[in-house]
Amino acid sequence: MKVNPIAVRQSVLTMLYQGKASHLGSNMSAIEMLVAMYSSVDCKKIQENAKDRSRILVSKGHCAAATYATMAHFGILPMAALETYHKDGSVLAGHVSHEVKGVEHSTGALGHGINVAVGCALGMRSRGITDAKVLALVGDGEIQEGSIWEALMFAVHAKLNNFIVLVDNNRISSITNTEKVINMHPLAARFQGFGLNVHEVDGHSVRAIQSAIESIQTQDKPGVIICNTVKGKDVPFAEWQPIWHYKSLTDEQYREAHAHLESLKVNS
């Protein structure tokens, strides 16, 4: 199934606007990553909750809108569900919720989903499930959490080659640039030092991310894909602006961003 990231981005923009929600920056940066992740697994098995399905864990739970929108574009969720995002009585919360069909695990506090993903990978191996994988999406701010590195140490030690971490390297964490908070440079070397199979790709290229996922699966150790992204991608006034972790869209900003995405869609 081929999904156009711009179409997902349009859905996300509308969800955030109608739900008066924040986290625009980190939702927009992760969209191609999510599209590549769902493109790499059997979505029908996720929809059917099959025991041998691949597991997708969104550890940076604040990219919930992008997660739900991607799932809807892949047919796991009904499109109509997206209209309830961030609204009274909905189960589509502002952080990823397992009340939503097809979501493996609720996240929101950082440094949790990746550990659960490691447990899934261990459990899948134990159950003899070999034709499925576990993909965990983490933020580059999130990797400041110590529990992330606990997960990686164990995954490498246990040789969980069905486990792949994708880092949304948008280089902005909560209030400012990551390099000003905790400079993780050189990031790839740090992951390599932990024994992971490391790839670094353009995080807005679905093809590049997918190809890295396929390549890691043939190795004997877990992998990490550093996806270099732009926070607020394709919303010109929000790109690289930390404040768009917190703000919600005005009517005028929504119209401007929507028009821009329309032009990108026409040209894509």
Binding site: K51, R55, E104, H105, G111, H112, I114, N115, V116, A117, V118, G119, C120, A121, L122, G123, M124, R125, S126, R127, G146, S147, E150, A151, M153, F154, H157, A158
Partner: peptide, 26 residues
């Protein structure tokens, strides 16, 4: 051995790993 894991001195990871195992029905 297939149903035993020593996650090391990393208790937060231990709980997360257990949640993942529970996801698999363990």
């Amino acid at each position: 051995p297939e149903r035993y894991a020593n996650v090391g001195i990393a208790e937060q990871n231990m709980v997360g790993v257990c949640a993942g195992l529970a996801n698999l029905g363990y």
